[in-house]
Amino acid sequence: MELPRYTKEIFERLSKGNFICQNSPVALEKRLFEICDENSDTLEAYFEPIGFDFNYGPGYFYFSKELQETQIEAKLDNILHLLDYIEMFLQYDEYFNVGWRGSPIALAEAATDNIVIKERIEKIRGLSGNNIFKKCEDIFKKMEKDGFMALEDEYEKRYIVLTSYAYLVDFFKSVKEVSRNEPA
């Protein structure tokens, strides 16, 4: 099997739980995306025997893992935590989606003017910082850490929503309400 160049970099990135996104502001990651895109079958066949499921969505690649029974509840907890973030961002800007750009300063300013956003931020659990700006900064950092945002401009502290965010959108779209008479 002839492996593409940068296979090592691709593995290192994905095995750490990162996504490889098409719209990443990092040039190397964009290049890695192109390589993944051109060699997806080869890479899938290469990683599969060593226990990594090489997956993709529109504009992103990732490694997935089958969860143990005990981990399902923790994943649900993570997802519900992200629901708080997404709902808050959508309250802030209905255009929040892949490619959206924003900064903690702008969010903090909006929260100062808009009590609804402020309340949402205050209620998000686990945020560090004792003022609204620090909390906003923490929100962006958490989204970055989970791989759904990237710092595009360090000077302006401007972040961009990565294509991996489509995973969350697709997930939440797949969640449907069930009849009240037939609990899920």
């Binding site: 990162n18 996504f19 499921d53 990732y62 490694f63 981990q71 994943k75 708080d84 791989g147 069930v178």
Partner: peptide
């Protein structure tokens, strides 16, 4: 809203979706 009312697990298929969907390592506990 359902989450805030502690009803999301009861009145949606979220638990089933969590179980059935692919889990990126980023969301793995």
């Amino acid at each position: 809203e359902l989450k805030n009312a502690y009803e999301i697990k009861e009145y949606t298929n979220i638990a089933q979706q969590v179980q059935e969907s692919e889990t990126p390592l980023a969301l793995t506990p």
